[in-house]
Each structure stands twice: as structure tokens, then as C-alpha cells.
Design a protein around this nucleic acid. Structure first.
Lengths: 159, 159
DNA sequence: AGGGCAAGGTCAAAATAAGTCAAGAGAATT
DNA sequence: AATTCTCTTGACTTATTTTGACCTTGCCCT
């Protein structure tokens, strides 16, 4: 038994295939009509299947000529690599190791210097907040660091 | 289907491209005529797409020889650009606005889609932690979002 | 100088479309 | 059998665009 959510999700994925580009624009109202559901179900589909963490970016506009644009930044068949990255990071990672990992990825041209910079800024920011704002113990910070780093790397999931 | 507002906005952007300069002069009435809309729609286009926030300044004159002049702002160096970005973000920013800002920067090729993706993942991660782990009130999350976003954008501006 | 006409400006209502949230229903896991 | 996760639904909210009626400004002409 396929849930409607899965059906709609699959349908959207086929749209990517058809349109050669890595971007799809759709109307929430029309899609809902097409599948005979309430419009807000579309939001659920997007939330559960097309999140940034899953390598998609969504832009939308309300009002007249409203739209929902979904950009695909990674291909579905990189799960293996993504898993590898998750293993690489693990559940806990020190600040030093995270830096080393990012440096290595950059050297291999898996990420650009700018991308590495954003990642480092985000990690450092989280770390600082954890220390000064919430007074977290080092271990907690190491797990949170691992989570953020994994999310970032997996979302990119490059070859 | 594009909204008229977008069509007119895009048209004005092409005018900048054609005329090499960083300034464009036009007549509200003629433009409205060209696109078959009421003149006040032009004001809406200007307000929504060519605001100072978005890097444009507008001068206009009424009366017999009325005109509208749109000037594109330029930044002298990256410090100035960084400052502009900090102003754009402000001390507090909603999730929606942060996403819109990132989308706009990407559209203008100030950042790549992948860079935008990392930024969104980092912001969402912080938000989720704030909500579920630390139970922060919305306002606090809005300020923390602004801080992280500023750090990211400024770091890129310097690059 | 004063009046007329030719711009452009403002504001708000109507039309349109998307987002949020929470409650309830259904599936899957333990 | 209970719990937990996922999905469905709908009432309410927010945002954007379009349109038009009315206001302001400034040149030009008598």
C-alpha cells in the first residue's frame, strides 16, 4: 500500500527526470487537485521528502502567481557515498578532526574553499554557543559537532 | 507562468545590462503602456524589486518632464559589502526572511546553490537544536539565526 | 502670477495562492 | 497491546500581485 505522500513524492521525482534541469516549478493548488488532496498535504510531502538535509532547496511564493520551486542539488543514487561520509564523521568528532576532515575534502576538490569556510563558520558558531550560552560539556559539543557536520556533508553528498 | 511584476522587473534588469552604466532612466507611463498595466503597478515593481535593501536607489520627478531613475549601488571594497550584508540581516531575522535572502543572493550569483544549501542546513540545524534541545523562545532563535547568517555571509564576502 | 495639463505618488481593496498548526487516522515497531 | 511514527485533513494565517480612485508636483502658457 503506497501512501499518497509517497505517490506525490515519486511524481515530483519524475518531474526532475523529464525536465533535464535540476529544478522543478509547481503550483501547490494544482498538484493538490491532481492528486485529490488538500493543499497542505503538499507541504507535508515537501517537508518529509525534499528537505535541504536531503539535498533539495525550496523556494516558494504566496499570492498571485504563487509557486513552489524545488532545486535538486544531489542525485538520488549517492546514498552509498553519503553513508560513507556518515561513517567518516561518526557520532562524535573533535574540533581538530572536523577541521582536518574538511581540509581533506577540500584538497580532494570534494568541496570548494568557500564551502569549507561556511562549514567551519557554522561549526565554530555552534561550538561557541554551546560553550558560552548553554555551558555544554565537551562531550555534548562533540556529538553536536558530529551531527551538524554530517548534515552538511550528506546534504552535499558529492561524488 | 510568470507574474507581470516579475516580467517587468526582469525587463528593467535587462535595461541595466544593455546600457553598460549602472543607471537606468524610464517613464512610468510608457512602461505601463508597454506592459498593458496601470501605472501604479510600476511603483509596485520598484518597491518590491528595486529597493535600497536590494542595492538600488531611485530618484524621480513628477510634472511635465517626469522620469524615474534607477541607480544600482556599488560597493567600494569587501568591508563595505560585508557591512551591507550585516545591515540586510539585522539583529533579528525570521526563518522565512533568511531563506528569501539566501535565495536572492543565489539568484544574483553572490553565492552558489551548494553554498546556499550548506547555509540552510546549518541554520535549520541551529534552529532545531534551539527548539528541541534548549527550548528557546522564538525571539532568541531569531537573534541567533541572524548572528549565524551574518557570520556566514560576512565570511564569504571577505573571501 | 495663476491655471492647466502631464507626469508621478499613495493607499487600500480585491483576488489569488501559499504556510502553519494541531487534531485525528493509520501503520509499523516493540 | 501499547507505543510511536507517519500521514491526512481542515481551519486559520500570511504574503504577493493587481487594480483603481484620489493626491501631489512641476513645467508651460497665457
Amino acid at each position: 500500500m503506497n501512501s499518497l505522500t509517497k505517490v506525490i513524492g515519486d511524481y515530483i521525482v519524475t518531474l526532475f527526470g523529464d525536465s533535464e534541469g535540476s529544478e522543478v516549478v509547481l503550483s501547490r493548488k494544482d498538484l493538490a487537485q491532481k492528486f485529490g488532496c488538500v493543499p497542505s498535504q503538499i507541504n507535508y510531502v515537501l517537508r518529509s521528502r525534499f528537505s535541504p538535509e536531503q539535498g533539495f532547496l525550496i523556494q516558494s511564493q504566496r499570492g498571485g502567481h504563487g509557486f513552489i520551486r524545488i532545486m535538486q542539488l544531489r542525485f538520488a543514487d549517492c546514498d552509498e557515498y553519503a553513508e560513507h561520509l556518515e561513517d567518516l564523521v561518526g557520532n562524535v568528532i573533535s574540533e581538530q578532526d572536523s577541521r582536518k576532515l574538511l581540509a581533506r575534502l577540500q584538497e580532494r576538490d570534494a568541496i570548494t574553499p568557500r564551502e569549507r569556510l561556511i562549514a567551519e563558520v557554522a561549526l565554530r558558531n555552534q561550538d561557541e554557543n554551546g560553550r558560552t550560552l548553554f555551558d555544554l560539556p565537551p562531550y555534548k559539543r562533540d556529538t553536536m559537532r558530529a551531527e551538524l557536520l554530517k548534515k552538511i556533508l550528506v546534504s552535499l553528498a558529492m561524488f
